[in-house]
Computed example of a mutant assay.
Amino acid sequence: MPTVKYLPRSDEWVVLESRRRGGDMGELVLMEEELSAVSATDVRNALVTRAANFDQVEEQALISAVPEGYFDEGPYRDVRLMWDGEALLVAFTHVMTWPEDADEEDVAIALGRILMPHLRQSGSQMKSVEPNYSYVAPDLAFDIMLTVRSRGKTIQEIVDIADGAQLLCSAFSDGTVTRESAADLIRGRRRASP
């Protein structure tokens, strides 16, 4: 039995054998406490089914930022899962203070470079690093999307990849990232992996 499935007739989700309505736009909402029990492949398949049901290319899944008993349509974690018509993605927005000596393109390239070792180690790839212009100065924001392998993984494992990427982005923005701190993060993830 799949850990997650979408029911087209009722526009409902079944997560761990429990029916639920979606978020504000009907999207799948997962609770933090169930991430380690939910199959990433099942989420991908459910997102594909909902996208097809509404003749859309894309669909997303959100993660509640509060425990299940307190959830009522938000708030959500910044990390979200997406089906883009080709692959399962994990996405987040990185916000930083605008650097004095660089433009958006330079920062996007630097963020991509700093993430590469982490992504290689996790078997993921960079899909995009795009400026998000809905933030105003002094903040500079980037929407970062990572292509992840879903086979044999739980959603918690995929969220861990995004969390590690967010840590690296924050260290880069704070000026605290070094080769050693990046290597420690990657080695820590390698030890934690089965």
Rank of each mutant, 00 (worst) to 15 (best):
M25K: 05
V79C: 02
R44E: 13
V79H: 01
L30R: 06
Q60C: 07
W83D: 11
L30V: 04
A65L: 04
A65G: 03
E59W: 05
L62P: 00
S39F: 15
E33D: 13
E86F: 14
A37L: 15
N53S: 14
R50D: 08
E73G: 06
D72H: 11
A65N: 00
E32V: 08
E68V: 13
E68I: 07
A40P: 08
R80S: 11
S36R: 15
E59F: 04
G26H: 08
M25N: 07
S36H: 15
M31A: 06
P67D: 15
G23Y: 11
S39D: 07
D24F: 13
Q56P: 11
V38E: 00
E86C: 12
A51E: 00
D55Y: 12
R50P: 03
Q60F: 12
E59Q: 01
E27M: 02
E33K: 12
V90R: 10
N45I: 04
D24G: 08
A40G: 04
V66K: 08
D24T: 07
Q60L: 15
V38P: 04
V29R: 03
Y76D: 00
A46F: 06
L35N: 02
V38H: 06
R80H: 12
A87L: 05
L89P: 00
D84C: 09
E68N: 07
D55V: 13
R44T: 09
Y76H: 14
